[in-house]
Write a protein that binds this DNA or RNA. Structure first.
Length: 494
RNA sequence: GGCAUCGUGGCCGAGCGGCUAGGCAGAGCUCUGCAAAAGCUUGUACAACGGUUCGAAUCCGUUCGAUGCCUCCA
């Protein structure tokens, strides 16, 4: 009996706009595809939030016992600056700008992407395919769509015929748009366009002579359209219909809408059962965006080298901050909010540390561990409600502290159970990590501070408070805080 | 302009018809030589105005405000 048989998971399906009971196509197995980054620049924190949200979802699905195949692509070609004819490939543009090979651009930012996600403790996906590695598959799909009559070729480019598709299918069902409205709202723009309709999108683009990223195809040298790679790779690794497709809210239209259209045109079947969309991380109340420069890079948070934060924050604190909000809600980043999260995170970690050495008794007072456990699952089962899960963890923190103070007791069995549960929710599901031992410290420094602590305690024993307070205050001024506890004095360095 | 979403106590952020999370800050207490740290206790807020209902932050309508998508963006 697996956990997923005991717990009923519900997810918000963007396609229906409703919370639905999650039922995979094949019992016990889950196929999940998430749109990855276009690797033409460093990932910013907003990008990270989306991947972190789906990492949490991946983790919880695995925790429930599902065998998950998680596919997250790397877009290393085909992502145009815009869909007009003069639209340039983002990778190629960057390569030209820096006078390096496109693959060099791809390599540089793919490495940055991986390093950053690792700092945030994201699990690697099961498969991480690239667009350039699937050109043949993409060409095959274009051929198939052409055969079905939902695409047309013009001057070496192939476009998807949205109007024709809409006659038999529903283009716009994911984003709640109507093609007629879209046509009515289209401004009459530049004439030199090969497309029959402005709503049509490129499946294959002809490469101009100076274009460096190019592949041969039945329509001449060119490169694939952006939307196509996801259809090609999700179909290849997860099948014509799979369970979950995720991505950022900003990809809902047109990207995901186009994916649906391509897949339906090609396979005559709806590709995805559950569409999940992660909401935006904002800065100054506005969406983070590379093009408007309203963003912050993870490295700037880790080293505190930026204009909006008062100090550096660890990846785990940032992750905790994000997990305190629901993945479908907009979350605004601010110094105050991060500061508050850091305190909360430390409180949680402190309690988890104290849990190990908690005294046990004959019975447990005032704490029904079994009921608490189910409350945690209920939170996660309700569309991955991590803020509530964290609230439940703080319920446990309070109990732990009360037991530590001797005001309540816990049995050996309950303590063991609680320890396991807290660890699996905190570390396995939320993906948080324990704070590294006082960073920046060394054995020598530890020795020196401990020496001062001893000197101070001697002074205190002699009631020489002038000396003891001097040691304490001057250390504090240097950023070393002494903490007097029942079992002696410890210190932390900020 | 079109289509959506959102507006919760000092701040962040859940909840989405009755039982009214949680974190941070503030206040009080415990501990302490005094502090700090830590712990405990404490908060009836839901943009405005109407309506539905025995009952609404939660449903409906209007107004105001913010954001997102409609061109590339996680």
């Amino acid at each position: 009996m697996q956990l997923y048989d005991q717990q009923t998971l519900k997810v918000t399906n963007s396609l229906t706009g409703k919370k639905e009971v999650f039922k995979p196509i094949k019992d016990g197995y889950v196929g999940m595809y998430v749109c990855g980054p276009t690797v033409y620049s460093n990932v910013h924190l907003g990008n990270c939030r989306t991947f972190m949200s789906f990492d949490m979802i991946f983790r919880y699905l695995k925790h429930l016992g599902f065998k998950v195949r998680y596919v997250r692509n790397i877009t290393d070609a085909g992502h145009l600056e815009n869909d007009a004819d003069e639209g340039e490939d983002k990778i190629a543009k960057k390569a030209k700008l820096e006078q390096i090979e496109p693959m060099e651009v791809v390599q540089r930012y793919t490495v940055d992407f991986h390093e950053t996600l690792q700092k945030f403790n994201l699990l690697p996906p099961s498969i991480e395919p690239t667009a350039t590695g699937h050109i043949i598959e993409q060409i095959e799909i274009i051929k198939s769509i052409l055969e079905k009559g939902f695409a047309y070729e013009v001057n070496g480019s192939v476009y998807f015929d949205v109007v024709k598709f809409n006659a038999t299918n529903d283009y716009g069902k994911l984003s709640g748009r109507k093609l007629e409205d879209m046509i009515a709202n289209t401004r009459e723009l530049t004439a030199q366009d090969d497309k029959r309709n402005p709503q049509d999108f490129a499946l294959w683009k002809k490469a101009e002579p100076q274009h460096i990223m190019r592949w041969p195809s039945p329509w001449g040298d060119g490169f694939p359209g952006w939307h196509l790679e996801c259809t090609a790779m999700s179909t290849k690794y997860l099948g014509e219909t799979f369970d979950i497709h995720g991505g950022g809210m900003d990809l809902k239209f047109p990207h995901h809408e186009c994916e649906i259209a391509q897949a339906e045109a090609c396979n005559n079947t709806s590709p995805v059962n559950y569409w999940l969309h992660a909401n935006m991380l904002t800065l100054n109340g506005k969406k983070m965006s590379k093009s408007t420069d309203n963003n912050i890079y993870p490295s700037e948070i880790f080293n505190g080298n930026n204009t909006i934060l008062s100090k550096a924050f660890s990846p785990s604190v940032v992750r905790f901050f994000m997990m305190q909000a629901h993945y479908t809600s907009i979350l605004d980043l601010s110094d105050e909010a991060l500061l508050a999260s850091e305190k909360g995170y430390q409180k949680l970690m402190e309690a988890i540390k104290n849990l190990e050495s908690l005294p046990t008794a004959q019975n447990t007072t005032n704490f029904n561990v079994e009921a608490w456990k189910q409350e945690c699952y209920d939170a996660m089962n309700d569309d991955f409600n991590t803020p509530i899960l964290i609230a439940k963890l703080f319920d446990a923190v309070k109990r732990i502290n009360l037991i530590k103070d001797g005001k309540e007791t816990i049995s050996e069995a309950d303590k063991k159970k609680l320890t396991n549960l807290v660890a699996s929710f905190t570390f396995d599901v939320l993906g948080l990590e324990e704070q590294q031992a006082t960073e920046g410290s060394s054995n020598a420094l530890d020795g020196v501070v401990n020496l001062l602590i001893n000197l101070r305690n001697e002074a205190r024993a002699n009631k020489d408070f002038a000396t003891s307070d001097k040691i304490r205050d001057e250390l504090l001024a240097m950023g070393i805080q002494l903490k007097d506890g029942k079992d002696g004095t410890t210190f932390s360095i900020n």
